[in-house]
Amino acid sequence: MPPLRLATAQLPITGNARQNGQKVRAAMRDAAASGARLILFPEGMLSGYAKNPIQDWSEVDWDVVREELEQVMVLAAALELWVVLGSAHPLTPPHRPHNSLYIISDQGELVNRYDKRFCSATETNRFYTPGLEPLIFEVDGFRFGCAVCVEINFPALFIEYDELGVDCMLLPSYPIDRIFFVKARAYAAIHNFWLALSVPSECADLMKSAVIGPDGGVMAQVEAAEGTVLNDLDRDAPELDVALKKARPWRAVAGTGEFYRDAHVTDPRSTDKTVL
Rank of each mutant, 00 (worst) to 15 (best):
S105Y: 03
L79V: 06
R29C: 07
A243P: 02
G255E: 02
I179E: 12
T266R: 09
L197A: 07
A121R: 11
E160S: 03
T274R: 14
K273N: 10
W82K: 01
I103R: 01
P94S: 11
R126Q: 12
F193N: 04
V65G: 05
S47L: 00
S47H: 00
D236S: 13
A189I: 01
A224D: 05
H89N: 13
N20D: 04
Y161H: 03
A78K: 08
D167A: 01
Q71P: 00
E138L: 01
G145K: 09
V242T: 09
T274P: 08
I190D: 15
D61E: 05
V265E: 15
E239S: 14
I136R: 09
V148L: 10
V74L: 15
K246T: 15
K23A: 15
A224P: 02
D63Q: 14
D234S: 11
D30R: 03
K23N: 15
L157H: 05
I179G: 04
F158T: 09
C203T: 06
L69A: 04
E258Y: 13
F154T: 15
P175E: 10
P268A: 02
Q10D: 05
K246N: 14
P94G: 05
E67H: 15
A186K: 11
N99D: 07
E163F: 02
T129Q: 04
V218R: 09
A243I: 08
L40N: 03
A36L: 05
K116F: 02
A147Q: 06
Q107V: 10
D234H: 06
V222D: 10
S201C: 05
L38I: 12
F144Q: 05
P155H: 11
Q10L: 04
V74C: 12
S87A: 06
A26K: 06
P2S: 15
N125K: 07
N231P: 10
V60R: 02
T256G: 07
P134H: 05
N112K: 04
D115S: 15
V83C: 05
L157C: 01
V64Y: 12
I104W: 05
A77Y: 10
V139E: 05
S201E: 11
E202H: 13
A210Y: 03
V64D: 12
P172Y: 13
L157A: 04
Y174V: 13
